[in-house]
Design a protein around this nucleic acid. Sequence first.
DNA 1: GCCAACGTTGGC
DNA 2: GCCAACGTTGGC
Length: 152
Amino acid sequence: MNYWLMKSEPDVFGIDDLQQRPQQTEHWDGVRNYQARNMMRDDMKIGDQVFFYHSNCELPGIVGIAEVVKESYPDFTAFDPDDKHFDPKSHPDKPTWFMVDVKFVRKLKRTISLQELKLKPELTDLALVRRGNRLSINPVTQQQWTFILSLE
DNA sequence: GCCAACGTTGGC
DNA sequence: GCCAACGTTGGC
């Protein structure tokens, strides 16, 4: 089983939004970066555990846990000219962009902030805290996963 | 294939 | 709102 961290802006789609969705499940659309796409398309499997991260907000950090419940399929928002993430170069018969479905598992008891994660010597290799990392999806090792949860 | 210009992300 | 760090685009 693999572990991941997925960023979302709480003003757009936060952990509470995921919890309130039908089946507490939502498709992770709108990723328009090839590295992030490759991770979703090739490596994210059903049952993988996901840290839900709030970015671009007052207290950026990990706020909850989700789980992959559907593996890679075409991101249909890329086909919709009215969608914010429309990509005219992606066609239904040969899609450029893919997504997975994630399901709410639980909220953390508290937000484990980016600031706090950066201070931990155990997490210097965490992709999230590496300089210049802007990817919306990051791999997390099992060791990192366990350690971060121990901070809760 | 190079690289300058531009766009985006996201912390601060 | 600023700006560093990337990714993408497009002229050549």
